[in-house]
Simulated assay, not measured.
Amino acid sequence: MKKTVLAFSRVNQEMAERLAQDFNVIIPDPKKGDINAQFNEALPEVHGLIGSGRKLGREQLATAERLEVVSSISVGYDNYDVEYLTERGIALTNTPDVLTESTADLGFSLIMSSARRVAELDAYTKAGNWKRSIEPPHFGTDVYGKTLGIVGMGNIGAAIARRGRLGFNMPILYSGNSRKSALEQELGAQFRSLDQLLAEADFVCLVVPLSDKTHHLIGKRELGLMKKSAILVNIARGPIVEEPALIEALHNGTIRGAGLDVYEKEPLSESPLFKLSNAVTLPHIGSATTETRQAMADLAYQNLRSALLGERPQNLVNPQVWKG
């Protein structure tokens, strides 16, 4: 008898067909009414969940009595109550590594576009304001040779550091829970406390996972430690930055600018950030390339299939639940 899989976000036709080869597949359809109602109605019969962007924990999964695995199409898993899933013996899988390079590309593009005021001057040009040579009020700042600070030197942080050091001759500073001796040797990266890094770096790039420890890691005090000429880039999670403090710092000139792909509330249709010319604001597109999203979907499919067929998944967030 086939097990049942429920998609809790949109999946493409190819994935739906692949899943249907081995499982009964339920994909909520907005044309058939409320998505949340369809999701909740299907839960009691479901053995596997696959998708991204939905908070799943004790309250949301109370009726999912047959659930064996949640396969997230993401590297981050702060949307899931890992402790609860582990308590229930439910495997949680994610899709690390396959999005490292595309997310690093996005992070460095925010460094470049913030420094050279790309979005601002694109709008300026399209509005018909370019009537003479650009003057100092519209000048940007150099990236080459400036100091790059990475907060959270994991795979993505290391990939950004390589782009900065090898491509732009940038001295690399980093902070985190542990020293990275291999990267220190490879890139000449230097370890700093967070406060030291904030004070020294020209560009501060946040690449840490969201946790109780990193929630509002960057607030008014931390922004005040940064150079007035510095730029903050956040491609991690929105709540790592205290947003009102950042808005105030950008408005008052405490820092030069910010490049943001993530926010405290998402999706975000209105924000004071959108009115600030020194903030580049993107709609959480870190991994949003055709190739990377396909690779993430493929890995999530493999994780789900393995778990439901009794094989250890490649990427277990909570390996202690696996008895096989």
Score class of each variant (00 low, 15 high):
10 R>D: 00
14 E>I: 10
22 D>M: 00
22 D>W: 05
23 F>L: 03
24 N>H: 00
24 N>W: 00
25 V>N: 05
28 P>G: 05
28 P>Y: 03
32 K>Q: 03
32 K>G: 06
32 K>P: 02
36 N>P: 05
43 L>H: 09
46 V>Q: 05
47 H>W: 11
47 H>G: 08
48 G>F: 10
50 I>E: 06
56 L>W: 07
56 L>I: 00
60 Q>R: 15
62 A>N: 11
63 T>Q: 15
64 A>S: 04
65 E>W: 01
65 E>S: 00
71 S>L: 02
76 G>P: 08
76 G>L: 11
77 Y>G: 02
81 D>C: 03
82 V>Q: 14
83 E>L: 06
86 T>Y: 03
88 R>T: 06
92 L>F: 03
93 T>K: 04
100 T>V: 04
100 T>A: 08
101 E>P: 09
103 T>P: 10
104 A>F: 03
106 L>R: 00
115 A>L: 15
118 V>L: 05
123 A>F: 07
128 G>I: 14
131 K>V: 03
132 R>S: 09
136 P>A: 03
137 P>F: 06
138 H>N: 15
141 T>I: 05
147 T>S: 00
158 A>G: 09
166 L>R: 01
169 N>Y: 10
178 S>Y: 15
178 S>W: 14
182 A>N: 14
189 A>L: 05
190 Q>G: 06
191 F>G: 05
191 F>R: 02
195 D>H: 09
199 A>W: 07
204 V>K: 03
207 V>P: 13
210 L>I: 06
216 H>T: 14
219 G>P: 00
220 K>L: 09
223 L>C: 11
224 G>N: 14
224 G>H: 14
227 K>P: 02
228 K>N: 13
229 S>Y: 09
230 A>H: 00
234 N>C: 15
234 N>W: 15
239 P>I: 13
251 H>P: 01
254 T>D: 12
256 R>E: 07
259 G>H: 08
260 L>Q: 04
260 L>E: 10
261 D>A: 04
266 E>W: 04
269 S>C: 14
270 E>D: 15
273 L>V: 10
279 A>M: 06
280 V>R: 05
281 T>I: 01
282 L>E: 11
283 P>C: 04
284 H>R: 11
288 A>G: 09
292 T>M: 13
292 T>V: 13
294 Q>P: 01
295 A>R: 09
300 A>W: 09
303 N>D: 08
304 L>S: 01
306 S>A: 11
308 L>G: 00
308 L>K: 03
310 G>Q: 01
